[in-house]
Design a protein around this nucleic acid. Sequence first.
RNA 1: GGUCUCGUAGCUCAGUUGGAUAGAGCAACAGCCUUCUAAGCUGUGGGUCUCAGGUUCGAAUCCUGACGGGAUCACCA
Length: 600
Amino acid sequence: MTLIAQIKTATEAALKSLFPDTDFPGNIVTVNQTKPEFTGDYTVVLFSMVKILRKKPDEIGTLLGQQLLQDNSDLFASYDIVSGFLNLNIQDKFWASFLLNHFNDPHFGEKPKKDRRVMVEYSSPNTNKPLHFGHMRNIFLGYAVSEILKATGNQVIKANLINDRGIHICKSMIAWMDYAEGATPDSTGIKGDHLVGDYYVRFNEVYKQQIKEQVAAGKDEKQAEKEAPIMLAAQELLRKWEAGDTDTRNLWKQMNVWVYKGFNVTYKKMGIDFDKFYYESQTYLLGKSIIEEGLQKHVLFKKEDGSVWIDLTEDGLDQKLLLRGDGTSVYITQDLGTAKLKYDEYKLDQSIYVIGDEQNYHMQVLKLIMQKLKEPSAPGIHHLSYGMVELPSGKMKSREGTVVDADDMIAEMVSLARTQTEEAGKTDGFSQDELQALYEMIGLGALKFYLLRVDPKKKMIFNPKESIDLHGYTATFIQYAHARICSILRKEGYEKMPKNIRFQTFQLTEVLLPAEKKLAVMLEQYCSIVDDAARELNPGTICNYSFQLAQLFNSFYDQHSISHAENTEKKHLRLMLIIMTASILRHSMRLLGISLPEKM
RNA sequence: GGUCUCGUAGCUCAGUUGGAUAGAGCAACAGCCUUCUAAGCUGUGGGUCUCAGGUUCGAAUCCUGACGGGAUCACCA
């Protein structure tokens, strides 16, 4: 149980024994960390009790303070009442025993495994172009949320639904057929996803040009858009694909393989993995059976032309098409099918979709339809919506090539890490391989942290002209604090983290200094931070915490010597503090997919 | 127009069951390396929490309205 929870429970118990005849509502006790300008560690707010007890806050505080001290003498050292707030001082020996129990636990912050299955779908790229900066936010978010949910005991399935069919693929295909002259990744040395993406851009160039020509020849613009030869060719290709035309399918397979190879290189570089892949070419026909059932249950209805609809006007939305008159699927049809497929396969308690906020409406409709159809998967559907990453000039558009490419971005960050390390003259004692690994750790860490530290639901603006910082509120800062701790531990003879320890006999006799206590308090809070992050599905919570912890450590490091502590007791105490700090930094960053170096 | 969402320091952002004098980082300025890594530490300046009402002992936080930005409302995916 976390300390705040303990204090809450103790306070509730104290209230009960003080006022046995009073009925208290469940949320009567609020416990906060005491503001730095007051003495105390944790604070109970007294105002909420005034009305029920018909006593003055200070009077309640005195009674409560005395009772708490009397019942929990091992926990509370003293209390202090300041204008309606009961400030409690925690016994130093509580912190000492907390450290002894947990300082060497690499799993501190995790919860026991439970039988709750969660699927997190993320990345879910189209196969007509390479990944860009916006995708990275999605991917890092999905990965981090998965890891955070695992740490809180969930069984997590990381899923990637690859959108490998549709008109956009055909666009790349037709441009490749017309202009590539048989170019392949091998023949050109271009990464497969980039090669295919180049022809997607090429398609749009040609398309624009053809529209221009047709408009010049007197057609109106809408007509020109519809009748541009290259667009007609792409649509024809899609028809052939759906009819199963061998040549078309072969080219499609070929180009997709190029793209997958490229994606895998990028995923690997990012340190991202998946447990399950779905391919839209295999799922796009799903959902029709659900619709059939829906018709029988009269949840859905058919129009004269044979198209199938659902009426969501009672829910404040519109009528929504679920199946075309000719019986073919639309986007939401296959999503209904995939949702059911996921559930049937894994019996999911929760199914999280990491998808941009532009699809809020779509996801709302999806969940609503599943609810109305009484599908068992419906309650678990959850849209983890995140804001778009925009450039100062506006949205990124891959059609127009105004995107920040993922591979480029990673390379740039790694190179930035190298430059800054070299400038700082910190390359001594590393082999070339070690340096390369370090640069990747720093560059990629900075990138991930930059994208994860902001609340997912907020859109963010990224200025490519300003490089991502390696100072201040960054992963680098945390990595640096970790490297410093490791350096101390190396000098103290702990090459690897000490297994068990000479501190078993540790006895606290001296008063904790402010900087020591602050660190201990912060360390103790880690469990509830992980909990918060899991509940809110927000890795930013972890970023905040880890940065603050690293900051506290740096400040501590500046004030107090560890190796040359005043005496053995202090030395052991501080070693426990920094060992646990390093351990939690590592753990928390692992949840975000960020590694920490032992030297930098 | 309907629905959703955001608005906090010059910039980027924290601040979640309403709690004490609203916090970080960057940028600016001033200090700190003979002692465990200065990618660090300490300090200074910088705020009408968009605005106006309301609820409350107490509001950046909850409610209503206004203003401003964004998304969405396809037989596209």
